[in-house]
Design a protein around this nucleic acid. Sequence first.
DNA 1: CGATGACTTGACTGCTGTCAACGTGCGTGG
DNA 2: CCACGCACGTTGACAGCAGTCAAGTCATCG
Lengths: 255, 255
Amino acid sequence: MPTRKQEKVVSLKEITVACQECSLNEICLPVGIDKNDMEQLDAIIDRKRPLARGDHLFKVGDRFRALYAVRSGSLKTFATSEDGQEQVMGFQLPGELVGLDAIAHNNHPLTARALETTSVCEIPFDQLEALSTQLPDLQRQMLRVMSQEIHDDEQSMLALGQRSAEERLAAFLISLSNRYRRRGFSSTQFNLTMSRGDIGNYLGLALETVSRLFTRFQNEGLLKVERRHIELLDRDRLCQFSSANCDADNPVSRT
Amino acid sequence: MPTRKQEKVVSLKEITVACQECSLNEICLPVGIDKNDMEQLDAIIDRKRPLARGDHLFKVGDRFRALYAVRSGSLKTFATSEDGQEQVMGFQLPGELVGLDAIAHNNHPLTARALETTSVCEIPFDQLEALSTQLPDLQRQMLRVMSQEIHDDEQSMLALGQRSAEERLAAFLISLSNRYRRRGFSSTQFNLTMSRGDIGNYLGLALETVSRLFTRFQNEGLLKVERRHIELLDRDRLCQFSSANCDADNPVSRT
DNA sequence: CGATGACTTGACTGCTGTCAACGTGCGTGG
DNA sequence: CCACGCACGTTGACAGCAGTCAAGTCATCG
């Protein structure tokens, strides 16, 4: 570490990047908002100290106060059934918003937990709402983001409802690949920040099934996997396996 | 504009009910909007001639122009895979909005088809957006509705991901029951407007499985089923079967 | 009255879950 | 530095839930 920290608040100031300079501002909430307006949005955003792996951003039942945008790292969101079982509902990468499902009832139906060291931008919802009435572009973007979330959830439902285990895992990997690419990372090599259990849980599969599929995909030359490091060797064939429209998941082209 | 269309479509005028007088205005888009504002909302809404069973409200790929609120009847929304297979994503009852997933990309990712004679209110989206900037309550309600949709989709994902066939069907029936009750219909007797195939498709089950489960539920005294007519005899036990928090689906209590 | 579509029921199969044992990497502490 | 424990991951054996295929029943409609 470069040890720039001079005092305590200053160090926080340094890792703080305003929306205007944030590399994610083209895929995050500020999409479609002009520079001046972005300053106003920036002003209501609170950058918190990073979460450590395993920390909770919020828990089921917590009062809803703010939305969160992932700045770096990753999260998983999950519901907990009465017997303590988790159901993973999604994984959030940088630029993605968390907590949208809490607006309706003013409390969080899911828990969000950091999968690794993760920093987020906190966006107080009442201020966001107030600002939206003044900035039509912001209002529009909010609706877009929520619509996209609905669309993504529908894609997940589709996968869970009528795809085989192999199709689900292939689609999951392609989706991750697309999301990493969009963020400027490699689309063919990346590290999974979630466990096999989390993946299986999310995809509605037993973790053993996920493990077996990774082995099989590797034997078939589709990818190379070593613990959590993934290298996609034959992305096209993997795409076919997923029997999903692989480009549809990836609206980057619309920019 | 107080100009109710005077000539032209007299028959339509008769079936037209303004939001202010609509029995659904407490569960539909106008929730939380005061009388004056409701008039403005009402003014942009277009009431179309009813759809016949099997008619499409919109199809996959159609340009997104408007949201729709079901006024009477019911719809199903579904995606179509390249080989022509349907995947049912949901069923819409009176008071529910359709098309929210289309905002992000300006075209409809799903097809919506009437399951019976169905009338809808068409809400042109650009006008709705413009109006929302003037009516904070409307903006808030839009966000609430979309958040609720996200939440509902998450519940569906949960069911598809880790529930048995029996749990899924039980949860589906309870959900229908709750939704009918909220609309002032009986929560213990109703007609299914969708086929066994649709139900199975929606729940990620073969239609034969759905059929067998109906038979089994009936043999166990949980319900009485005759073709599409359902009578729930032991709602509590059905609730337990569904291993879902049956009240959570039913936010009617919040009113 | 036959055709059609929706639904039911039965027989069989197979995908995937469960249970269980084992391997592997990593951090901790002696 | 090594031993150990622990979490995570892999692999195998087996079973069962639900899918598929197929035949048969029922209601509706032309």
